[in-house]
Amino acid sequence: MVKTLAKRMGLLLLTLLLVTVLAFLAFSIIPGDPTSSILGVDATPEQVAVLREQLGLDLPIWQRYWNWLSQAFAGDLGTSYNFRMPVGQLMAPKMSATLLLAALSFVLIVVISIPLGILSARHAGGWLDRVVTVADQVTMSIPNFVVGIALTYLFGLVLRWFEPGSYTSATRDLAEQLRYLIFPALAVALPRSAMTVKMLRGSILSEMGQDYIRTAYSKGNSQSSVLWRHVLRNAMIPVVTFLAMAIADIVAGSIVVEQVFAVPGLGQLLISSIGNRDYPVVQAIVVLVAAVVVVCNFAADLLYRVMDPRLKGR
């Protein structure tokens, strides 16, 4: 068990390293020099040379990568070309908004989809199940940002439950932040919840058809105790893995939905940095998301092993 985990961990770290190499390479081979976007087109060659040295652009690429990587490990992700401040400092306040949004979205997905999936499977074939299935299929087909716009319209403009655009990083009060973020979180969560409901429903129904369920009934279990004691434990295994893997998509969804609700998070920073060709920032965000992906996959793997005794010790 420990050996397998160590191996998986090593593999994941290797993946992460690979991502940083690829990201670094990608941003190094871009045509056009960041100096021109910083200094403008009419900079003197001397100015450009000085800046290139300042930014370390005169060094060979492997050395630049090494510098970047060792600094990154020390917590220094470089300096933003555009804002002239350390990337870490720039990202920190934005990161909290995005991570809060992603976390809230995740909680919503769990809270929405698990009861609905169970309910739908329990009444499979009935009218409730049909309503859920149709609603599910439709919800799955709505892009995050469209859900966001619809929520803004309904709850922000018509019902006035929140004021669109009123979220700032200066909003210190957590309760207040959450009250605003619940709407973008819903936008991120709804399509993904629909997928989860569908998956859980399918998983429960396929477990219900297994032989061991018949055994459980033969011992005198009631329908609900068969569901809670036998079916769910087995049916949740693939769903938990799916959810853990979905975290990366939730983060990506948050980045898009932030734009809809004007949440000053990583999404806004990423979009503006892409526009400004502010590569150290883009690179740092990419690496951060990569880290989230890697950690989540690792967690998914771990959970899978904990939940399924058949995989223990393998």
Partner: peptide, 23 residues
Amino acid sequence: MRLCDAVAAFPSILLALVVIAVI
């Protein structure tokens, strides 16, 4: 396949944004 796994684990919108940033 390792490489494919790594790429597929990433949200495609995000990767596309980054590629667009480059090209």
